[in-house]
């Protein structure tokens, strides 16, 4: 029986006196894909930064695999969680250098793992190419491969397929699904694309102006939403 990867209780985040996130209660189950949807400015990226322990919450508590997190958490714990940012930045070097980077940070042997990732992500012919000369799709694939390199316990994805062509979207979604199938990594996916959330997620959370207005399993979320704003969002209508 798998437990919760995260339990958030009364978590708020305030910037310059403005509350941008307020989560009364939210759990992320171990091994699942949790999609977080909502319009711009609803607090999705802020939620990911809190889950990545990159910044402290202003109030409330975050429990990670049963352990209450005090900010800043120890480095070994922080290293269990990696994130692909909405606008990822690769380090200046080759594709191979980028994939090896998280492993080097942890002083892990990297040769076989890097070669495996290059093959898995269809990047073999680009292994020695400069990361700064990749197409948008290739760049995003390298960023995802890099985030997975050190076998994270939790993978956070912030709009990983925004601005990508259908081929690249399918490739990245396939990898997300294969990570899900392997069952070792919990994934939290922020997306604007409700269809993507429907295709990939086990559960979906809807944020609006920093508040969780709906959370449930994917089928219920799309077929029988409780909140009329969720229903409108799912239909593709504007939600404020």
């Amino acid at each position: 029986m798998k437990g919760a990867a995260y339990d958030l209780l009364g978590v708020t985040r305030v910037y310059d006196g403005r509350r941008v996130l307020s989560v009364r209660e939210l759990a992320v189950q171990e091994g699942e894909i949790l999609a977080v949807v909502g319009p711009n400015g609803s607090g999705k990226s802020t939620l990911l930064r809190l889950l990545n322990f990159l910044e402290p919450c202003s109030a409330g508590e975050i429990t990670y695999f049963g352990r209450r997190i005090e900010y800043p958490p120890p480095l070994d714990l922080r290293r269990e969680v990696t994130m692909v940012f909405q606008r990822p930045i690769l380090i200046n070097g080759t594709v191979r250098d980028n994939l090896a980077y998280p492993l080097r940070l942890r002083s892990l042997q990297n040769r076989d793992r890097v070669e495996g990732l290059l093959a898995q992500f269809g990047l073999e012919r680009l292994a020695s190419a400069s990361a700064r000369k990749l197409s948008v799709g290739e760049y995003q694939r390298v960023a995802l491969a890099r985030a997975l390199a050190a076998f994270p316990r939790v993978l956070l994805l912030d709009e990983p397929t925004a601005n990508l062509d259908p081929y690249s979207v399918a490739l990245i979604e396939g990898i997300v699904q294969s990570v899900r199938a392997a069952g070792r990594t919990t994934q939290v996916l922020v997306t604007h694309n409700v269809f993507q959330a429907k295709r990939l997620a086990d559960r979906v959370v809807m944020l609006l102006e920093g508040d969780v207005i709906e959370a449930g399993n994917t089928r219920h979320f799309f077929d029988d939403p409780r909140d009329p704003r969720t229903a409108a969002f799912v239909r593709g209508e504007m939600v404020y």
Partner: peptide
């Protein structure tokens, strides 16, 4: 150097010293 890189390096598991070193290389 792009200020977002610092956060992304931390997100990949870099310690403070590793972040500084990587930024100096960048």
């Amino acid at each position: 150097v792009d200020p977002d890189l610092r956060l992304q390096l931390r997100s990949l598991g870099a310690s403070q010293a590793q972040v500084v070193r990587a930024l100096l290389v960048e």
